[in-house]
Design a protein around this nucleic acid. Structure first.
Lengths: 157, 157
DNA sequence: CGTATTTGTAACTATAATAGTTACGAATGC
DNA sequence: GCATTCGTAACTATTATAGTTACAAATACG
């Protein structure tokens, strides 16, 4: 499945930035884009998906931007995965197999079951990590904005 | 990660066909391609990866074709996954994040750890199903060649 | 109010991965 | 030797993802 997207990784990056901003001021897509090293529209598209899943809220206008809709402890990577990928990591055949063949006629159904189970395992694994965990693991020495305004300013981006 | 490949699904399809052939006669890539509904070269490329992982053996020439290198009970979907995808379902950023930002500088490392764990969960889940299981689930009423030559002939393809 | 700013989204291009195709040398059974 | 089949290279086609430009709608603030 490589060849897949980097959206999941980017979405986690985005949420981590918002978590570190502490929810006091909304973060602009331009600022996020700079950290991720991509175009602001790409970021806004991802923020849009995250907003649909009620993980963030966004606001247009002069003092606009995005912030977390919940505390980072309450956002798991499973939530992000579902918001971004719709919960499907594996793909079936591109073209329909030959239905006159017993294997071709039934393999999609059988595989569907197996891949559903696999996906459930993925989700269980992802559910064990939260955005707060990611923030913590980032760098023990560089605390987020809330904890130390000076350190956060030095390390911002 | 959708947008990924269908090779994993096709590889399982291929191995299932070989398992049902029972290992008596080698199966030709043309015959497999017909069941999968694709080009024989696509199948041969996948067979090549499966041969490198020692899951099948192939033979050139007049009476050539491919057959399983082990009994289907001893080939797990994890083996197939590793042979085909190299064991990486998730992808990181496309372009390098901004290293001047604490998040950008460290997110790849942190995510790498999380995704490794996730991948391990995928593999554990896939290890629980074998090609023999797939064959069994295909259709209780249409047994493979070994069990009933007549039924297999009728249902072949 | 009017202006500056920022989101949301459409429309397009670019890049890259995957699949499909043609072709042919090498291997092999008959 | 000859027909057949694999392995593989080289190419095209298709699709997904990312990147870009542009602009209407929302909103803060003077």
């Amino acid at each position: 499945m490589p060849g897949g997207s980097s959206r999941f990784a980017v979405a986690i990056h985005v949420l981590t930035l918002l978590a570190r901003a502490g929810g006091d001021a909304p973060v602009k897509s331009d600022r996020v884009a700079a950290s991720v090293n991509t175009n602001p529209v790409v970021i806004r598209r991802i923020l849009c998906a995250l907003a649909a899943a009620e993980l963030v809220t966004s606001q247009s206008g002069a003092a606009g931007g995005s912030r977390l809709a919940r505390r980072p402890e309450r956002i798991t990577l499973r939530d992000v995965y579902r918001a971004i990928e719709g919960g499907d990591a594996f793909r079936l055949h591109r073209r329909r197999p030959d239905r006159r063949c017993v294997v071709g006629a039934n393999i999609e159904g059988v595989l569907g079951g197996v891949l559903d189970e696999t996906n459930a395992a993925v989700e269980r694994a992802l559910a064990r990590t939260t955005i707060a965990d990611i923030v913590t693991r980032l760098q023990p020495c560089a605390p987020p904005a809330r904890a130390s305004a000076r350190a956060a300013t030095r390390a911002k981006g």
